[in-house]
């Protein structure tokens, strides 16, 4: 879960270090205090969300996240997460490498693709945009955007007119 979050946060334009996963047992109050204090100070250093990310428009970041939440709800990426967890569990392999690689290869692509799709829909419902503009706005390669656009247009959800895409 944590690794998926980290990789996907990065994809959404959020510094993954803003999320931390720490362990403190019930008996480790001093450790807890140390962790929390250190973490708050780290986030203070990074500044408000968006600042350390160098994202000039906070709105854009929030859009990535909104689409991200939808993506994390979608069945495909969730199945990918479940399947990977099941596999690692079965193999008893909880090494950092296996998790990082697994998430990178299996889960992140599914989440990313779903996020891009959601974001295209969100953007186009607000107005027509060119492929270049879309690709810049959703933080994705043109090819990735094109793939979704072609599927969506086949379904009749979107249409292209004079180089600009809009909802059909």
């Amino acid at each position: 879960m944590a690794e998926t979050c980290r990789q996907f946060l990065k994809d959404c334009g959020v510094d993954p270090e803003r999320m931390s996963l720490e362990w403190a047992s019930a008996a480790e109050a001093p450790r807890f205090v140390e962790l929390i204090t250190g973490y708050v100070s780290k986030i203070k250093d990074k500044g408000p969300l968006g600042e350390a990310e160098g994202e000039e428009e906070r709105e854009k970041l929030i859009r990535h996240l909104k689409a991200g939440v939808k993506a994390a709800q979608a069945r495909k990426p969730r199945t990918a997460l479940g399947t990977l967890s099941k596999k690692l569990h079965k193999e008893g392999n909880f090494s950092k490498e296996a998790i990082t690689e697994g998430v990178k290869a299996k889960i992140l692509p599914a989440l990313r693709s779903e996020r891009i799709l959601q974001e295209i829909k969100m953007l186009l419902s607000e107005g027509a945009l060119s492929l270049d503009e879309l690709s810049k706005e959703v933080k994705a390669e043109k090819e990735e955007v094109e793939k979704h656009l072609s599927t969506l247009s086949k379904k009749g959800t979107v249409k292209e007119e004079t180089g600009k895409w809009s909802m059909a």
Partner: peptide, 25 residues
């Protein structure tokens, strides 16, 4: 349990204006 935590929760938190999310197991 931290196992309850869903990726959605984390993203939603950032969306709702969190500058950081601390999950503690």
């Amino acid at each position: 349990c931290t196992g309850r935590i869903d990726t959605r929760f984390i993203l939603e938190a950032f969306k709702c204006g969190a500058d950081g999310v601390f999950t503690g197991g």
